[in-house]
Design a protein around this nucleic acid. Structure first.
Length: 685
RNA sequence: GGGCCCGUGGCCUAGUCUGGAUAGGGCACCGGCCUUCGGAGCCGGGGGUCGCGGGUUCAAAUCCCGCCGGGCCCGCCA
């Protein structure tokens, strides 16, 4: 691990020495060095309050004593040591540090920040993994950007990284979409839209039909006579809605007894189904009506759906062909969208492949052998349930996994009553596959926090299988969802802001700014592309994954508010300086650091030196926002330097060369950092 | 009812794990700066009960307890 920053190394050697001093005094305390808040307090500070307290000494005297001790030692890069209050403040030798840091950055160039040694360890980052029946929208995009940037950084740190997309083609939603997709195909209805948009609409409509049917079945249990009102099972007419509401109102006691459901929530469901139906019918009348017509020929869509789910799980045609055809078409579009964002995968893993290979069944059997699977009679069949809580209690694992003892972890349903598997069940098999077949040492799953519980259950399931080490190395990289101002995204209503739209509108916005410039059309296009990507990615990555992002398209388009373009802008300015400078020897031996030891320069040097540390922190803490923050601050620091310190019109050639070297080094870090975020640094903008 | 997460000037955000010096940035606002390397910029200014209340400590945004507000989850969905 040689990618330590220089100052980090200096701190370590100081810490060793201080630890020795503390030990000599017979004190047990540990001390951490810190970065002082102001430059006048030096570069590294050591507060001595803790040890002073433990031996009842005056902190100021003790600090003086420590300072004396340290002064006697020889530290390579330390210039002076001062005491202020209970702090020992250490000032570094700017010239020496600057020379060393610049030499490091300039010689490594594109590799600065990266580990030289490649590690053998394979890390799998699974991200995006959207259902293959809809377009990538702004919410999914957060997942993709986090996963991709994180994978980039891991690979900079020397790991072997593979990016995997899990194609979830066995879910209920996908199969119902495929049914509708097939019905339209039979009627020769061709999509005028991109495939992912097309299936997104089909999904919404089919889902609405099935919800209507399920709702009616419930009502009819209470009032079989109301069946006569029904024209079609898949729509709730205005009359029906009225009557249903009356039934729910008047007979609420019976309703709750028979259905075991809350009347208020049933009312809400009813209202929702009707509203969604109206909305979809209005927006997509043809598709809606044709699907309704075709669906009405089927006795029960929900039964039919269940049959098809079973058939697909067994790998039977024709549903197999239909689903595969539809999903591949959607995935093609998803790939296209993501490639516009510069995001690629090493592998698309089809859920169904795993199931058809018999691997899911194998895992299921193994789980049953553990003795923690409970079978429960239901719907004329048997559901299998994994007793997570029971296992945790029997192994006393709760505190290890950070779960409150009193909290009872809900069981995981492994199979439906007809024997088909559920998402998380298949995910257990998939996870085993990642570790076992792919040989991953570590797996990061970039998945929204709403899946917290299933991810925990998955983790425990691995332990039940005896794969504790894998479970320890399975990391749920969680993030919160994206909310929108002014509208709500909803797959059920086929309402979303797609990643393509976001990019298109942002590009247009950048083009407007570029209008007055005298770049060629071609250049403008290229720049707009890069800057738009920079704005979007930076904005989404800049927010902690654990915080809900409220995406305001208007704000996102205000490029002044966006720090991505600001960072890019400073890179472009750097390129401009270097271009105008012509050919200067900027190799380390030609640079005299004594010319660049002012506060502004020193601030830049310290930040540049910190870059490798930042990358490590991003990975350790799952916080890509540390990198966006870092880059923004580096750009701010550079901007200040740029304003105050002339480079091309320096006083003499040596000074000019030194300043040019510094500028170049800043450019290298900005460019490398942006690249890790998946953002290109334009030389002109 | 239970569990997890978030709460820092008008808005966004760092710092919280591992407690230390004047809570760091950005946007917006007000006032300056285009004869100087790219003004998508720079300089200056106002604006804060770090959600609230206790506790621990020489020292709390940070640790502990209790509340409040917001989000998510507790389906034979994913």
């Amino acid at each position: 691990m040689n990618a330590l920053s220089l100052i980090r190394q200096i701190i370590s050697s100081l810490e060793d020495r201080i630890a020795r001093w503390i030990k000599e005094k017979g004190i047990e305390k540990k001390i951490d060095l810190q970065r002082p808040p102001l430059m006048k307090y030096g570069d590294i500070a050591c507060p001595v309050f803790k040890i002073a307290k433990s031996i009842g000494a005056n902190p100021v005297y003790l600090a003086e004593e420590l300072a004396e001790y340290l002064r006697k030692e020889k530290f390579d890069f330390v210039e002076k040591i001062e005491v202020y209050g209970g702090y020992v403040n250490i000032f570094l030798d700017r010239e020496k540090v600057t020379a060393k840091v610049l030499s490091e950055v300039l010689t490594k160039d594109q590799l600065y920040g990266c580990m030289e040694q490649k590690l053998d360890e394979l890390i799998i980052v699974e991200h995006t993994s959207t259902n293959p029946n809809a377009p990538i929208h702004i919410g999914n995009l957060r997942n993709s950007l986090l996963g991709d940037a994180f994978a980039n950084i891991l690979s900079a740190l020397g790991y072997r990284v593979r990016r995997h997309f899990y194609v979830n083609d066995m879910g209920r939603q996908v199969i119902m979409t495929a049914i509708g997709y097939f019905l339209l195909k039979e009627r020769n209805v061709k999509s005028a839209l991109k495939h992912d948009l097309w299936t997104g609409i089909i999904y919404a409509i089919m889902n609405n039909f099935i919800s209507a049917e399920e709702f009616k079945e419930k009502i009819w249990k209470i009032r079989p006579d109301l069946k006569e009102l029904s024209q079609t099972k898949y729509q709730i007419s205005d009359d029906e809605e009225k009557v249903f509401n009356e039934v729910l109102e008047r007979e609420h006691k019976r309703v709750e007894d028979i259905l075991g459901e809350d009347v208020e929530s049933l009312k809400r469901t009813l209202k929702d189904i009707v509203e969604v139906s109206r909305d979809l019918k209005k927006r997509f009348p043809e598709i809606f009506n044709i699907l309704l017509e075709e669906a009405s020929k089927i006795e029960s869509l929900s039964k039919y759906l269940e049959e098809q789910i079973r058939a697909y799980e067994r790998g039977e045609n024709p549903i197999k062909m239909v689903v595969r055809d539809m999903c591949s078409n959607v995935i093609k579009e998803v790939k296209k969208t993501l490639s516009r964002y510069g995001i690629y995968f090493d592998s698309f893993d089809w859920e169904s492949d795993l199931a058809w290979s018999g691997f899911v069944e194998e895992i299921l059997k193994k789980l049953e052998e553990s003795g923690f699977v409970i079978s429960k009679k239901s719907n004329g069949g048997e559901v299998k349930i994994l007793d997570i809580e029971g296992y945790l209690r029997s192994r006393n694992l709760k505190s290890k996994l950070g779960i409150k003892e009193e909290f009872e972890v809900p069981p995981l349903v492994l199979t439906r009553s007809d024997g088909t598997t559920l998402y998380t069940t298949r995910d257990i098999a998939y996870t085993v596959w990642k570790f076992d077949k792919m040989g991953a040492k570590k797996v990061y799953n970039v998945i929204a926090t709403e899946q917290n519980l299933p991810q925990l259950q998955l983790n425990v399931a691995l332990r039940i299988l005896g794969y504790d080490e894998w479970a320890d190395n399975l990391i749920h990289f969680k993030y919160e969802l994206v909310h929108l101002t002014g509208m709500k995204m909803s797959g059920r209503r086929a309402r979303y802001i797609t990643a393509d739209e976001v990019l298109d509108t942002t590009i247009n916005e950048v083009l407007k700014i570029l209008e007055k410039s005298n770049y060629s059309e071609e250049e403008k296009r290229k720049i707009a592309q890069k800057v738009a990507i920079g704005a979007i990615k930076f904005a989404l990555l800049n927010v902690s994954p654990l915080k809900v992002v409220t995406f305001d398209i208007k704000k996102a388009l205000d490029l002044k508010e966006n720090t991505g373009p600001f960072v890019q802008y400073n890179y472009a300015r750097i390129c401009s300086i270097l271009r105008k400078a012509g050919t200067y020897r900027l190799d380390p031996s030609a640079v005299q650091a004594k010319w660049i030891t002012g506060d502004l320069e020193w601030d830049l040097i310290r930040r540049i030196d910190e870059f490798p540390e930042v990358l490590k922190k991003v990975v350790q803490n799952l916080k890509p926002e540390l990198l966006t923050n870092y880059l923004n601050e580096l750009a701010v620091a550079f901007s200040k330097f740029y304003e105050k310190v002339p480079v091309l019109r320096a006083e003499n050639d040596d000074q000019k060369v030194a300043r040019l070297a510094l500028v170049k080094a800043v450019g290298i870090v900005l460019r490398n950092g942006l690249k890790l975020l998946g953002i290109e640094a334009p030389e002109k903008m």
